[in-house]
Amino acid sequence: MSAHESQSESLKPTPAATASSRIGLTLFWIYVLLYAGFMALVLFRPDLLSLRPFGGVNLAIAYGMGLIAGAFLLAIIYMAACRAVEGGGPPRG
């Protein structure tokens, strides 16, 4: 085995890393859908963004803030899921 192949072997993803990656990609596509939905509204139905479905603020602000809060929420879910996959041990960072 060459040094390069040996290095490649040592860096192969572990089952936990593969599982984390799958979770990450699933959450990624969920967010892509949310982001694409917002872009579609801005591009094709901007009139809907002026509506105030929640009383005070309009949909443009509510959706925009939701995308920011949603990113954080998905990040927390991802971190918790990765921890579970990796065995729930103490933080290693």
Partner: peptide, 17 residues
């Protein structure tokens, strides 16, 4: 604010991918 939304959304690619 659209810039804010886009700048933050980019971190989803960074984290998950």
């Amino acid at each position: 604010f659209l810039y804010s939304i886009g700048f933050l959304a980019g971190w989803i690619v960074a984290l998950f991918v």
